[in-house]
Write a protein that binds this DNA or RNA. Structure first.
Lengths: 105, 105
DNA sequence: TACACCATTAGAATATTTGCTAATGATTAA
DNA sequence: TTAATCATTAGCAAATATTCTAATGGTGTA
């Protein structure tokens, strides 16, 4: 019964996973690359990446032996924006409708 | 060792808690009010509210027997915006600097 | 083929979360 | 004061999450 927002916010509840996303916002990295940056075992990192991928926040693409993970920036920002809209109170509703598209910021 | 962001995102990992925040975005509500809307015991709701209050996302004010909880909208939106900025890649950095203040949207 | 390396899955230990009921505090009203 | 109501804390059980090491799978190279 878990929807997209559930998976995204479950993913973001982990500080290491949020940090992973910030690393991936700079460049694509492999499981081992990331594990080294975290002093964390590769299996543990692999699980974190699986959680993030399950939420659609990252995508892994095999490049030879390695699997390069990249951030799906739009999925993440859309989820944040969607929830931000949901908690924007009645007074801000019309402002929401006239919101400037993210690309224009 | 948990910082503000940790507490905010830990809070948001729970679907009921996210829903609580959307309810509170409309109006202040008491523990019992909220428990009734969730088919959840009052103690369970009280704990959720304690978690949210610990993250600074809501504030409770006693009004006679009841305790009215309100959403601290700015704390929530600031946390979301801060993380969104952190994952905005290099290409968007300069756009960030020129970002339109939230109030102007 | 045989070996090395990277990634993932499996299994286990520990810790945390989440829900309940029961008990305790706090406040108002009879 | 006594009773009623709302909120919270305490104690417990079940489920989940996080980490490790060991085992397995996939890929490239000698």
């Amino acid at each position: 019964m878990s929807n997209d927002a559930d998976r995204v916010f479950d993913s973001l509840a982990s500080a290491p996973r949020r940090q992973i996303l910030t690393f991936l916002s700079q460049t694509a990295l492999s499981t081992t690359d990331l594990a080294a940056r975290f002093t964390m075992s590769a299996p543990a990192m692999s699980r974190h990446l699986a959680v993030l991928a399950g939420a659609g926040l990252v995508s892994g693409e095999r490049q030879g032996q390695r699997v390069l993970y990249r951030l799906n920036r739009d999925v993440l920002l859309d989820a944040l924006a969607r929830f931000a809209s949901a908690v924007d109170g009645p007074l801000r509703r019309e402002a929401q409708a006239a919101r400037v598209p993210r690309e224009a910021l």
